[in-house]
Design a protein around this nucleic acid. Structure first.
Lengths: 115, 115
DNA sequence: CCCAAGGTTCGGTTTTTGTCGAACCTGAGA
DNA sequence: TCTCAGGTTCGACAAAAACCGAACCTTGGG
């Protein structure tokens, strides 16, 4: 089963849950940013400049965590998240490459131009 | 650009849009079923037994269409949909394999058992 | 010519999901 | 010990998405 913090084991990961997690633009950005960073990189939730409140951030990281995309580890004072690269690659081969190679589409500049 | 029916060209496909399309259980089922069928298989929307009304079905197929996952072709009386395998494989290599190999998680029987 | 089948569009309702602020917990460090 | 930074939880609210029925369009076939 999942551990106390709600992390699924590798075998329990569901593609549907992962895709659902990735369907939110903010969460996609987090995973995409992670995918471009060196393996094992740890970051705090706050280090992502997502422009939402702490509680919302916590909510999004819960979904990332429970889908299996990231793991969060208590480091005493803080809490560090990292991409579960090895598990994801084993369970859903190729998925992370896809995400790493597809940065989120940013707002079309034309939207500002003639809005 | 997209053609009159709203199909993006291969280059215009956005992974974010595709993942978003796949994040709905019904739409996931459609794509997953297609993925298991022989290449080029054509089906009508209605042929998927999704248990929703026609208008809802139309809504879901629009999202599948506009994300680039399926193409719908007018066949006079009817309208046939098929998976855009070649385009998807070129644009997002490995994605269809992932879906084909991960059937949707069905309702946990325990839900009915002690509900 | 009319009908039926397959789809779409258009409101409007319901459900889900993202969002916030406030209160709270934890541990590092002054 | 007090404080503060990082996170979580809770309840409420707002935005988005799913869903439906009804009216409508198109075309093949009787």
């Amino acid at each position: 089963m999942v551990d106390a913090e709600g992390h699924p084991s590798r075998d329990e990961m569901e593609l549907a849950a992962v895709l659902n997690a990735l369907s939110d633009p903010l969460r996609y950005r987090v995973v995409q940013e992670f995918a471009e960073l060196p393996d094992g990189t740890e970051r705090t939730c706050l280090s992502f400049e997502l422009g939402v409140s702490k509680s919302t951030l916590s909510h999004h990281f819960r979904i990332l965590r429970e889908s299996g995309l990231v793991q969060q580890i208590n480091r005493g004072n803080s809490r560090k998240a990292h991409l579960r690269r090895e598990d994801l690659e084993a369970r859903f081969p190729g998925l992370l490459d896809l995400i790493g190679q597809n940065p989120p589409p940013r707002k079309d500049p034309a939207d500002d131009a003639d809005a």
